[in-house]
Write a protein that binds this DNA or RNA. Structure first.
Length: 315
RNA sequence: GGGGGUGCGCCGGAGUUGGAGAGCCGGGCCAGACUGUAAAUCUGGUGACUUAGUCUGAAUAGGUUCGAUUCCUAUCACCCCCA
């Protein structure tokens, strides 16, 4: 690939509420490029307030893709997201050199930049069946099956995590092959390069910001949004901080104060998990507030790659 | 001023009333794992240290005892009652 054909995706990650959107919009405006969202909740058109989806005014005219592009009634898997996003990006990069990929879902970023291994389709009903067995017979029962069917994966999997066990078994039962047989863990070739950075902040300040962000969501009508969606609470996409807690409140399991407290707590815990993920994945860490530094760093990266894009004054 | 009660680890609760535990539950916090449910799911830590272990520890200071979180004395703090 010649230098002129260099394609670059600037991936921006980080914990919830750290300011990913603001920075992305700023950079997108500067280079006059769109933003592709890597967020497993903002992708649903029904989840607005609770997902922290940027408003029209926050987008400032910058085109956003994969925001509100699906419906909670048709859940999108990470695999589907990869397929759609890559198709979109390949097409985009035919005529363009630079894009911003912004979002808090680490696995989505990974699906774009590295790709997921190809797994067979799960036969309808298998997952539900496994869920039933898990509830009735327990994890140990499923573990025994995994040990027999796929000793390799059994040896390395987190055996206390039902999600991992049932995932492996749904693939095994659907394909009659070992789960580990599909786990090549080999990065895919992409038509573009990913530059991965994440924003962070002092923990105390981040948590304060998250707490007040939740207060803002409540003011904006999170409770009503949750109420409308409560009939569909069992959908995977509604297993989400900000909604689940309200569902319990509607049930009378907890009172309003408690629901709010839990939303804040679970948001903080989520933020921590995100930080752990990006550090673990080797992303470059930047201070959320140091835009100047990030700008200069990015300029440098573009120059190195021979990417010459006018900093547009539009916006 | 008099009488009574309570006091342990970041916080709350339970529990031990002479054979002691850096111990139980919850919270908070810290850290980690994670390839199609990922805002999901799961794990570890939270007195100190030279960390497979060692030391200190039940408000503080003494005392009784072979042995004290437990009993005694004083002090401090908080709570209740009486003046």
């Amino acid at each position: 690939m010649s230098v002129e054909n260099k394609k670059l995706a600037v991936c921006i990650g980080g914990p919830t509420g750290v300011g990913k959107t603001k920075l992305s919009v700023f950079l997108a405006q500067k280079y006059n490029i769109p933003i592709l969202s890597a967020d497993s909740r903002q992708i649903y058109k029904e989840l607005n307030i609770g997902s922290g989806k940027p408003s029209i005014s926050e987008m400032q005219g910058v085109p956003h893709y994969f925001i509100s592009s699906s419906s909670v009634y048709k859940p999108i898997s990470t695999g589907k997201f990869e397929t759609q996003a890559i198709a979109w990006l390949d097409s985009y990069f035919k005529d363009n050199q630079l894009i911003i990929i912004c979002g808090g879902t680490g696995l989505y970023h990974r699906a774009i930049c590295r790709g997921l291994d190809k797994f067979p389709k799960v036969i309808p009903g298998v997952r539900e069946q496994l869920q039933k067995e898990l509830e009735k017979k327990g994890l140990q029962f499923l573990l025994a099956e995994l040990q027999e069917q796929d000793p390799e994966y059994y040896a390395e999997v987190d055996r206390q995590n039902p999600r991992r066990i049932t995932r492996a078994l749904e693939v095994i039962r659907s394909s009659h092959q070992k789960f580990s047989a599909f786990r090549k863990q080999k990065p895919k070739k992409r038509s573009f390069e990913c530059l991965q950075i994440f924003l962070s902040d002092e923990r105390k300040a981040l948590y304060d910001r998250i707490n007040s962000r939740v207060d803002q969501m409540l003011e904006d009508g999170l409770e009503e949004e949750a109420r409308v969606l409560s009939a569909y609470r069992d959908l995977p996409s509604l297993r989400t901080v900000g909604y689940q807690e309200f569902f319990d409140y509607f049930d009378g399991t907890i009172d309003y104060e408690e629901a709010v407290r839990l939303i804040k707590r679970n948001s903080r815990r989520y933020a921590k998990r995100q930080l752990t993920w990006y550090r673990n994945q080797g992303w470059l860490e930047f201070d959320f507030n140091d835009w100047k530094f990030i700008e200069e760093w990015l300029e440098d990266q573009l120059k190195k790659r021979g990417i010459n894009i006018k900093s547009g004054q539009n916006g």
